[in-house]
Structure formats: C-alpha cells, structure tokens
C-alpha cells in the first residue's frame, strides 16, 4: 500500500467512528432484546424440562450466565495471570 493510500485510509471517517452511531447500535440491541423477551408469550413451547416454561427463561439464563462467566473469569485472573514471558524469561 502506498503512503498516500495509507494517509487517506487513516483520515477517512467511518460510520462507526461517530459515537452517535455506536449509541444507535446499542439502542437497537436493547430494543431487539426487549422484543425477543416479549416474544416469549407468543409461541408454543415444546419443553423437555419444567423450568423452560418460565417466562423468558432463555433470555434470563443467557444474560445471567454470561455475567457470571465474565465475573468468574475475572476472579480467575487473580490466581492465573502471569507476565507474558512467564515461561521464557529464564532462557
């Protein structure tokens, strides 16, 4: 890639560079999630387990478990994280 193109590339404003547009995406995600949650009342469930019939079970489960995953992983960092060259520094 030539210098000019590089210059052009880095100065060009992209749609996502605008924080307003990022906000739009986040709002859209919230709306989609809200609709999907409400959709739980509008279809016939074919459950294998009783707890699947809780209103919005999949939504709640997905959210809660992901938060738990990240928090647990963050705690794991305290015990497991070492320097990048941990295995190589003696060499």
């Amino acid at each position: 890639m030539s210098e000019d193109q590089e210059q052009g590339n880095s100065t060009r404003r992209y749609w996502l560079d605008d924080q307003k547009n990022v906000r739009k995406i986040i709002i859209a995600l919230f709306i989609v999630c809200g609709l999907l949650f409400l959709a739980d009342g509008f279809y016939e469930k074919h459950s294998h387990f009783g707890f699947e019939n809780i209103f919005g079970f999949y939504a709640i489960y997905g959210f809660v478990m992901c938060v738990a995953l990240v928090v647990a992983a963050k705690v794991m960092r305290i015990f497991l994280m070492r320097d990048e060259d941990y295995y190589d520094r003696d060499r």
């Binding site: 986040i26 995600l29 989609v32 999907l36 999949y58 939504a59 959210f63 941990y86």
Partner: peptide, 26 residues
C-alpha cells in the same frame, strides 16, 4: 433469546467497564 441476551450481557459489561480488558499476559 439466548444469544441476544448474551450479547446484551457483553455490551452491559463493556459499558460498565466490568469486562476484563485485553492484557499482555500468560
């Protein structure tokens, strides 16, 4: 539902800065 709420969790954790940042580490 499962996936979008998983995405929602990611977004919320990023916005609240709870999500662990990418660090040079082993």
């Amino acid at each position: 539902q499962l996936l979008m709420f998983s995405a929602l969790a990611f977004t919320v954790l990023m916005l609240t800065r709870i999500y662990p940042p990418e660090l040079r580490s082993t």
